[in-house]
Structure formats: structure tokens, C-alpha cells
Amino acid sequence: MGSFLFNFFALLTVICAVGTVVNKNAVNAAMCFLLALVGVSGLFVLLDAYLLAFVLLLVYAGAVVALFLFIVMLLDAQGGPRRPFKPVTIAASTISLALLAMGVLTIYERSHLTAAPATPAGPTLKEYAYQLFSTYLLPVQIVGFLLLIAMLGVIVLAKKHEGLEDIK
């Protein structure tokens, strides 16, 4: 059963990821992204990280993708005509592909890892919270500060500025 679920979610994720990247229409791409996130969330559940799975759905799928959709629909921009790919791009793509292949081979050659999970269930919510508030307290504070700055930045950026020249 675990194996089946894993395969299902993994396949879902990969297909939807490809869909995100390939789709011409930005809205379609966003919806595919959403489904990819659902797949990843399922994988998290299979890895016993229940809290993270839900947080992913809530924050990422719920807030971030929603935001993406808002902006996509706000900036109802049409893409221009398709242009042929530049040689640089083709070269870069090949290199990435090669790296990926190398990576896969490396992992399979060099891994000495066991088949089954070593320990039973993952961390509980209590352990998780405890870690957040003791070992990782400083990062929590810094991230809070970061969110504050991001909020301020967004407010400033999104303002309409009157009288500025077009820089084109």
C-alpha cells in the first residue's frame, strides 16, 4: 500500500511539474503547479511529516499559488511570437541534462543506504514545537523580522509613483 501511494503521488508530482513548465497559458501553469504541490504534500505524509504536509498545503498551495493566480490574472499579458532558441540556451540545457544524468548515476553507484526506513514514526508535533522554541529560536526571530521587512517592502513597491519618467 505504501508503495502504491508513493508511486501515485510521485507520478502526480512529476507530471504536473512538467505541465507547469510546458504550458503556454499562465493560468494553466498555475493550476498544474497547485496539483504538483498536492502531490508533494502527499509525499510528505508518506514520510510521516504530517504537520509539514498541512502547512505546505495551507501556505504554499493556499496562499502562494493563490497570489500567483491573482497576479497572472491582473497582468493579463500576452506572450509574443515564439522565437527560436539561442545556441547558448541549447548548450546550457544540454549541460543541465548531462548533470542530471551524472547525478542519477552517482546516486545509484555510491549509495550504501538501506531499503527500509531505519526508525519508526517521524517527530511528533510536540517535539517539533519544542525544537522550534529551543534550538531554532534565533532563526524563528530572524524569519519574523524578515517577514516584517517583506511586508514593508511590498507596500512600498506596490505604490503608484506619480511623475516618474519612463526609463525605456
Binding site: V88, A92, I95, S96, L99, M102, G103
Partner: peptide, 16 residues
């Protein structure tokens, strides 16, 4: 932007 992505790729290669 593309150029910056290529640099990013270069960095990944080096790390690899």
C-alpha cells in the same frame, strides 16, 4: 535574466 541563470548553472556545476 537568462545570463544570470547561466551563471547560476555554472555555480551548480562547480559545486557538483
Amino acid at each position: 535574466l537568462n545570463v544570470y541563470v547561466y551563471w547560476f548553472l555554472g555555480g551548480v556545476v562547480v559545486l557538483w
